[in-house]
Design a protein around this nucleic acid. Sequence first.
RNA 1: AGAGGAGUGGCAGAGUGGUCGAAUGCGGCGGUCUUGAAAACCGUUGUACCGCAAGGUACCGGGGGUUCGAAUCCCUCCUCCUCUGCCA
Length: 423
Amino acid sequence: MLLVNSIRDNFEVVLEGLQKRNFTHAEAVLHQVLEIEKSRKETQLERDNLQAESNSLSKQIGMLMRDGKKAEAENIKTKTAAIKDRIKSLEESYNTYEEDLRQLLYTIPNVPHYSVVKGKSADDNEVVLEYGEIPELPEDKLPHWDLIKNYDIIDFELGTKITGAGFPVYKGRGARLQRGLINFFLDEAIKAGYNEVQPPILVNEDSGYGTGQLPDKEGQMYEATADKLYLIPTAEVPITNMYRDVILNEIEFPIKNVGYTPCFRREAGSWGAHVRGLNRLHQFDKVEIVQIVHPDHSYEALEEMSEYVQGLLQKLELPYRVLKLCGGDMGFTSSLTYDMEVYSAAQERWLEVSSVSNFESYQANRLKLRYKGDDKRTQLAHTLNGSALALPRIIAALLENNQTEEGIRMPEVLIPYLGFDII
RNA sequence: AGAGGAGUGGCAGAGUGGUCGAAUGCGGCGGUCUUGAAAACCGUUGUACCGCAAGGUACCGGGGGUUCGAAUCCCUCCUCCUCUGCCA
């Protein structure tokens, strides 16, 4: 969430930023924040002063009791009663102000980077670059949902029987392709200096708030209600929350973690060809990279992560493009996001396979993730993450783009991981 | 899951109603000494909020309560340890 001080000190900048993402009533909400904050401070001042008075009287009572002057002590006791009532009522208002402030801040999205354009929807995203040749496929090319049936490598009906729609069963070479890709992605990340972690895939409420899934996206997560736990929608949640309530030493930067996890998304209300087959699932696999860095270097880190993800796509020989998201299309917590999309030659459309974001201090503020430098001051760190990569659409593109009469050709780099070169 | 025990500063560990944000040791940082290092000695060393500052307030696992006053007493939740049970 945003820092109140930054809203106060950079009011115009914050306002302009929020307007870029079409956040309605931005000005009114920001003014409300400052107003509540003002009341909060006034209440604290009064409460603290009374508390100081009460503390001092209590000490006097203690000393009088020790000296055996009981009558005098009793006399002071009566004075404290009134103060106590007043403190209690101030305490209640203070808590209300604090809670109202927090709830209000939860509703305010991150301020986009100054270079982010306004825009209304995904149509206004800027294509930063395109890479690779779009393959020419024969007339009888098939979309992946037909290919997986023909080769019997992914079974949606079977998954529907076991669980429900959007939970496919990967079979035979389909399963091995999954496993091969996961291992390939993890190995590449390790080579790039990331530390591999295996986090839990159920998280508690605090973690959901820490990275911003709660309260914003409550309905999009599966919930284990008996234990108040959530199935993670992305490994970003557990991996970033490892650093909740942590004060790092500056010399530990940059912190680079990578983890493979299944991801679970309820994604209600979607339909049509765009969500067919592997395009949108309730459960899918993803390798996620997460960085925690010094605020001065977070945009360098973002570029580095973007290039890293692009390198993976190049190795997989997939044509891709990089989008810089406009304000209207960016996630709630992000300051700047690049989306990587691969071209699916049979569906003849671009599929998002990665999203790389810099959250600046927005998540860190919720997480209380700070660092201490040479000057001994504690400050908020910056967090970033990116998919590297999400499997289903990569598989969709690999299957579609590499289909031949002999079968589906696998990219060179995967063959050692698969043990076969064609499906 | 049942029975018992325990949660205090970076770590170890004292403190069982008042002068305790908290002894002491270790570690960290600064200094003295030394050609340098070690040792020794001296100093310093939590977080957050309010305040221009002086200073104030809160925090001893979380929340609530008793009391003029709580690390200390009570309730509740969480976590960890030991034993028993169960289990990949």
